[in-house]
């Protein structure tokens, strides 16, 4: 009766890892070309972006809020970068720093308004989403920047490790490790989590919750801007419609990755590597759906079903683990 399941097995990440492995097996046996060098390289480029978008959403979910303006913010930042590099001729490195600062600033606006009005960040970012996207379309006149410096666009199409992996993926994985370190071992990271988990308790123990929430939104803006830059490098141009109307194409991967990864929507819990695994799973399924030829129009339907299935499964897992802990 004293059989104990190792703690690691009970975690969400373990389940995700199993799912990822199962899906890889299914797709590599049932379809040709899944394990081809070209497909793996293409996958690595997509996964890199999905991870970054997922992380950008995760840091806001930490506060118990969400960031609908993610896509609009990322595209605005990317267009700003295109303008810096193409129209102003600013060197690439300085442009990237400017873009990241710009993204953080847009995130700061989200955070500031949310904290000051006390309104749920949903409505604030819904408003800023249309403001950012509207200004971006207005200022760029919906024109793309296609003559970016070659070093920058070449980086996006670079192939590493025997031409299997895109350097973009390395940036994303590196960001994961940095975020993990920040949340796990630094003072500020712990404060961010504390503020998200129990704002009242955090406030009483001397943490400025408002400031922490603003930091989370700034970090989200920073990561979204980084995702925007990566997408620009991948496409080789900064295009206003690259994340769909109002940046909505980013929204599903943004929520899927953290939710699959076990981030609580009520806030106070982050799972950096869970988010990474979640993003990998989403990309795998997306890619697999195309490969088994489900028809491009049904892909959205299946993604929606998977999100629904994921949250229901997560609910079931929670239910069973709670029941287990009560019994023991």
């Amino acid at each position: 009766m004293n059989f104990k399941i190792p703690n690691f097995v009970k975690t969400n990440q373990f389940g995700l890892l199993c799912l990822v492995i199962i899906f890889i097996c299914i797709f590599s046996f049932s379809t040709d070309g899944f394990t081809s060098r070209f497909n793996i390289y293409a996958l690595s480029r997509v996964v890199a972006l999905d991870i970054m978008i997922g992380l950008a959403m995760m840091v806001v979910i930490l506060t118990g809020g969400l960031n609908l303006s993610l896509g609009a913010l990322g595209v605005s930042a990317a267009m700003f970068g295109g303008w810096c590099m193409e129209s102003m001729g600013i060197p690439i490195s300085i442009s990237i720093i400017l873009v990241l600062a710009f993204g953080s600033f847009l995130g700061w606006i989200n955070g500031f308004v949310t904290v000051r009005t006390g309104v749920h960040s949903f409505i604030v970012t819904l408003a800023t989403m249309s403001i950012y996207f509207g200004f971006m379309t207005l200022l760029t006149e919906a024109e793309a920047f296609r003559k970016l410096p070659e070093i920058f666009t070449d980086f996006g199409s670079l192939k590493l490790f025997n031409k299997y992996i895109s350097p973009l993926l390395i940036i994303s994985v590196l960001t994961c490790f940095i975020l993990y370190y920040v949340f796990k071992y630094t003072d500020i990271g712990r404060k961010l989590i504390a503020a998200g988990a129990n704002p009242d308790a955090a406030e009483l123990s001397g943490i400025s919750v408002d400031r922490m929430f603003i930091y989370c939104h700034m970090l989200s803006g920073f990561l979204a801007a980084l995702a925007g830059i990566m997408l620009t490098a991948r496409i080789g141009a900064a295009i206003p419609s690259m994340a769909g109307h109002l940046g909505f194409d980013w929204l599903l991967p943004a929520f899927l990755a953290p939710v699959l990864g076990g981030t609580l929507l009520s806030g106070g819990k982050v799972t950096v590597f869970g988010t990474m695994l979640g993003a990998i799973l989403v990309t795998l399924i997306n890619n697999g759906l195309y490969l088994i030829d489900v028809g491009e129009f049904w892909v959205r339907f299946f993604l929606g079903m998977i999100l629904l299935g994921a949250v229901l499964l997560d609910r079931a897992r929670e239910y069973f683990t709670v029941k287990n802990s009560i019994v023991s």
């Binding site: 929507l265 339907f301 079903m305 629904l308 949250v311």
Partner: peptide, 22 residues
């Protein structure tokens, strides 16, 4: 399920829209 309506309706948004496009 007690899951927030936001996430449920985000999923059904994609399901309904996907059916529409399909």
């Amino acid at each position: 399920t007690g899951i927030s309506a936001f996430i449920i309706t985000l999923a059904t948004l994609y399901i309904f829209k996907g059916m529409n496009l399909g």
